[in-house]
């Protein structure tokens, strides 16, 4: 499929081109942001977990949110998806003010997330998990639910869409199995496919690679790229920099609750602030591929 490859390259290229003119510094404005967050702060007692001054997410690109453990990535994720309440701050989605909006409403307007600890509904079948993701189902209303003829045809089309996605994610042979019988990696795939059932404009993946074997990692990366090709904006949390390097168009680095660096993957990984955040500010050693010299500095290091 040479054409597909070309299209994919061009979409990736255009996403990168749009971002190439953007200066790599924290809080930099983007040409076409799908989400803009301002002064988002969340503290737990005396600890400020998240304190983000300004950050924008470019539409149509894959943006990675990285940082060492405890940097506040997942908390920030929970805040902007409405699963946790910010102490202060505002953020917009498609120019619409969404701070304080209920999480289910955010999902309905196109901001769908997944979870670090996979939430496949294990006592439901794979296909039911998928069907649950579809939006605007008539049969989900109490009184309509009693009258199957009102929703039977919609149920069929939802099922077809689900089957299509399951095939793409290589889960089509598991259709009738309980999700609980899937392996950890398959659950990750199912959760991602289920999120796509809701036709998100912005899909937010919380550590999609955590606990996944290397072979499946490659396939997950492929699926994330496919999402971008289909016009979905992807924002994902990861703390492994190498994984990020491969697929992201833009990287946002958080440490101690703040955005400390932004930029294309290559630039960010050379950034002194980022290296300090990952390895501790006072490390003397050279950062090497093998990581042998890491033994010299243990302060601030993250496993």
């Amino acid at each position: 499929m040479p054409n597909d490859q070309a299209v994919s390259d061009s979409i990736a290229a255009s996403a990168r081109a749009a971002l190439s003119a953007v200066e790599p510094r924290p809080g930099v404005p983007k040409p076409d942001p799908i989400m803009v967050a301002d002064h988002v702060r969340r503290s737990f007692g005396g600890l400020t977990a998240v304190n983000v001054e300004h950050v924008e997410i470019q539409r149509g690109a894959i943006t990675a949110l990285i940082g060492p453990n405890g940097a506040g990535k997942t908390t920030f994720f929970n805040l902007i998806t409405g699963f946790d309440d910010a102490n202060e701050g505002t953020w917009t989605f498609n120019d619409r003010q969404v701070a304080g909006t209920a999480p289910y409403k955010l999902a309905r307007i196109g901001m769908v997330r997944t979870f670090q600890l996979t939430k496949a509904l294990s006592r439901m079948t794979v296909i039911d998990n998928m069907r649950l993701g579809a939006k605007h189902q008539t049969g989900e209303r109490f009184f309509a639910a009693i009258l199957p003829f009102l929703w039977n045809s919609q149920e069929k089309s939802v099922g077809q869409k689900a089957m299509g996605l399951l095939e793409r994610f290589n889960l089509h042979e598991k259709v009738g199995d309980f999700a609980g019988s899937l392996s950890g990696g398959q659950r990750k795939l199912l959760e991602m496919a289920r999120a796509l059932m809701a036709d998100p404009e912005l899909i937010m993946l919380d550590e999609p690679m955590a606990g996944v074997n290397p072979a499946l990692k490659q396939s997950l990366l492929g699926h994330i790229k496919t999402m971008r090709e289909e016009g979905t904006t992807v924002l994902f949390v990861e703390h492994d920099m190498d994984m990020v390097h491969d697929i992201s168009d833009w990287v946002i680095v958080m440490a101690q609750g703040e955005v400390i660096a932004e930029g294309p993957p290559d630039t960010v990984m050379k950034d002194q602030a980022v290296i300090d955040a990952y390895l501790g500010a006072h490390h003397e050693a050279q950062l090497t591929e093998t990581g042998e010299s890491l033994t010299e500095s243990s302060d601030g290091d993250s496993a």
Binding site: Y104, A107, R108, R123, L132, A145, P148, A195
Partner: peptide, 24 residues
């Protein structure tokens, strides 16, 4: 019905159902 699918989902994991846009 799809209504039943949602409540069974809620029984298992509310957050997952919320994340799919359902008013749990």
């Amino acid at each position: 019905s799809p209504w039943g699918r949602i409540v069974r989902g809620i029984r298992e994991d509310e957050a997952a159902v919320v994340s799919l846009g359902k008013n749990v």
